[in-house]
Design a binder for these strands. Structure first.
Length: 169
DNA sequence: CCACGGTGGTAGA
DNA sequence: TCTACCACCGTGG
């Protein structure tokens, strides 16, 4: 993955599970961070950003709160996935097709993007997903209903799946 | 349960 | 380039 320098605007989203941080480029939502103890503060106050981004952030906040509650997200802001490779974007796009309460295996995702043997690589692309929760990488599990892995806290994956009613072994 | 080989994409040297 | 990772998967003990 190449790191293109971009000016990102960071804003906070308060949820019952803590404060997420959302990052916006001029193209749309570019990243989300899980709450962390050192509380990665927003770089700006919402009043001081372009109204376009304020509108995106309202959509992000609402969608994030719903998914964290185990509900369908509703409307998304535009996503800026320009940091990803072509392969990663294909995987992320496939993940967006998984509805709330459903799950697919890494193998099924590989098949869905027409590269049935790129199974391990799909796992790598999941870990590189810059917009967790909204791009639902937590709904990608291992074959046979096993939980699989997660980049950050495995607890988040278990919690989100459980709230959506997905049973894993 | 465990070991192992086949895989494709990515990052780093 | 080459190499060493991997959020995998199926098969075989």
């Amino acid at each position: 993955m190449k790191t293109v320098p971009r000016n990102l605007v960071s804003l906070s989203v308060s949820t019952p599970d803590g404060i997420f941080t959302a990052h916006y480029s001029e193209r749309g939502l570019a990243g989300i961070n899980f709450p962390s103890k050192q509380n990665p503060a927003a770089t700006r106050e919402p009043e001081n950003v372009p109204t376009k981004i304020q509108a995106w952030h309202r959509l992000t906040s609402a969608a994030l709160k719903r998914v964290v509650a185990g509900e369908a997200p509703g409307k998304f802001p535009p996503f800026d996935l320009s940091a990803g490779t072509e392969f990663q974007c294909a995987v992320w796009q496939a993940m967006l097709q998984i509805q709330s309460g459903q799950a697919k295996s890494y193998g099924e995702i590989a098949q869905a993007i027409g590269k049935p043997k790129a199974v391990r690589a799909v796992g790598g692309a999941c870990g590189a997903n810059p917009i967790p929760v909204l791009v639902p990488c937590h709904r990608v599990i291992a074959a046979g209903g096993k939980i699989g892995g997660f980049s950050s806290d495995m607890n988040w994956k278990r919690t989100l799946l459980k709230r959506e009613g997905v049973i894993v072994s």
